[in-house]
Amino acid sequence: MSFEVRMKCREMLAGALKLVDTAEGSADPDDMATRLEEAIYDELRNSEFKYKNRIRSRLSNLRDPKNPELREKYMRGEISPDTMAKMTPEDMATDDLKRIRQSYSKQAINQAQMRKVQGTKTDVFKCDRCQKRNCIQLHTQDGDEPMITFVICEECGHRWKG
């Protein structure tokens, strides 16, 4: 990775951090941009392609006018440069977007399960994965074999024998 590329990335990150006046108690945008770029470089120095994509992702999220909280939390030190460098798009999303994605996921899980499963809702079982008691119970019995109980968590989709 060339020195010029790294300096340009730092400059762009600093520009994204300076989009809004920094609140009192915030760090210097140039310093925070340098620290973020160094954290990304330390992790991805062997892949220029991945390094540039990670920088682009951070720029996009830091510039997002709908997500000023991310920039503010980073500038106040609530998110460290190392953490910011490794955050996924889901981690950087606004709280509203996270809630929307979560509701879509729950709807998709429920729709997929209801198409396949017609069981009885129960709170008798506790999911090992999410620790919730929102489950569907199914019973199967073939001929002279004993009855088997299957349980599906409606929260996370985890399946097990009860």
Rank of each mutant, 00 (worst) to 15 (best):
M1K: 06
R99I: 11
R76S: 14
D64R: 03
D142Q: 14
I100R: 15
E72L: 10
M7D: 15
S2V: 02
P81K: 05
D128E: 15
D82V: 04
M114K: 13
V20H: 14
P29T: 05
S80Y: 09
I152F: 07
G25S: 08
I152D: 02
P89A: 03
D142M: 10
M87V: 02
M114C: 07
M92G: 03
K73H: 09
K18S: 15
K8V: 01
S60C: 12
I152P: 00
L13E: 07
C127R: 02
D30E: 10
V117K: 00
E43S: 09
E155G: 02
E90D: 13
C153L: 05
C153F: 00
S103E: 15
D128G: 12
R129Q: 06
S2L: 11
A93F: 00
E145A: 12
K52P: 00
E37A: 10
L70F: 04
Y104I: 13
E145Q: 15
C130N: 10
C156H: 02
P65Y: 10
N67T: 07
E72A: 13
F49N: 12
L17H: 02
L59Y: 04
K18N: 13
S47W: 06
S80N: 07
Q113P: 01
V124A: 14
E145H: 12
L59K: 03
S60I: 04
M114Q: 07
Q137R: 10
M147D: 12
E37Q: 14
A39Y: 03
C156E: 06
M87C: 01
N110T: 08
H158C: 06
A39G: 01
C135T: 13
E24M: 14
R54E: 09
D128N: 15
V5C: 08
L138N: 06
Q118T: 13
M114T: 12
R54Q: 07
Q118K: 13
C130G: 04
R63Y: 05
D142V: 14
D123C: 00
D31V: 15
R71S: 05
T149F: 01
L59I: 12
G162W: 05
D64H: 02
G162Y: 11
K132M: 11
I136G: 01
R6T: 05
S47C: 08
H158D: 14
V124D: 08
K66P: 02
K116R: 10
C135G: 00
E154F: 00
S80I: 04
T34C: 15
F3H: 11
R35D: 08
T34D: 14
L19V: 03
C9N: 09
I148F: 07
